[in-house]
Amino acid sequence: MSKTISVKNKSNSQRLEVLKTYKIYIGGQFPRTESGRFYTPLDATGKKLANVCLSSRKDFRDAVVVARNACSSWGNRAAFNRSQILYRMAEMLEGRKLQFIDELMQQGSSKIKAKEEVALSIDRLIYYSGWCDKYQQLFSSVNPVASSHFNFSVPEPTGVVSIIAPQSSSLLGLVSVIAPVIAGGNTCIVLSSETKPLCAITFAEVINSSDVPAGVVNILTGKVAELAPWFVAHMDVNATIYCEADKAMQKMFKEKSAMNVKRIFFYDKIDWTKEKGQSPYFIFDTQEIKTTWHPIEPIGASGGGY
């Protein structure tokens, strides 16, 4: 007769915990890096955090392809619907607060700071959710012209944006750079903080369960020095955001972006925990202004101009 296996005779301390494999996020899926490489970031005390994918330029290239494909459907979606989806992201983040607090503490944050950071991140998503269908009015204009035209300018998404996320702010920094970009109808490829990558991948799970279409947000983990040149040189990327004050790196960004006159933004003096860490002008950065000249009846006949 076979012995029955009892699950009760093992106490909690004996149970082998199931650890999460931190994989990258491309096109709505969680693949490992195609390179098969990994690195092991350490916490402040020198303890290993996890084995994390060391993404290669080919992962980035694949991500650009899916981000480009996702562009038109995301950008053409009703602004109100984008707003609903960002709100949904906030809801999902709220529901998983404890996990993020736990990860932030693993990465060296105090409990109070971690709680604050998660709360602020949720609020930031709500903030940009609200702006999704409002920035257009703010940045649009009807322009006076000296001919018989109705002339107006409206913002449109620039396209694919590559982002090197803030290095010191693992979750709040990440959310603060992704939210305005996707609120404005762009798609993005984000390289997470190199030393604190855990929250980024867990945040990808939040995105994955929030009705964000595949390819709109893609998150890689890896070395900034290795990947940054590819992030800024790729001809199919329309804008790049870099958040550190490294002058040599900024110079490289300016040089490599010239090839396809890509827009570059350095968010290197911004404290994401402060009021100035959120603004509709962050949305405006990755917008392009389109001006339309629409013929109308002669100004004289209508009795006035615009």
């Binding site: 290239r61 650009v64 590819w230 040189a233 790729h234 001809m235 199919d236 090839m259 396809n260």
Partner: peptide, 8 residues
């Protein structure tokens, strides 16, 4: 040595 875009 640079990834290209269909736009060009």
């Amino acid at each position: 040595g640079t990834y290209q875009s269909g736009n060009y």
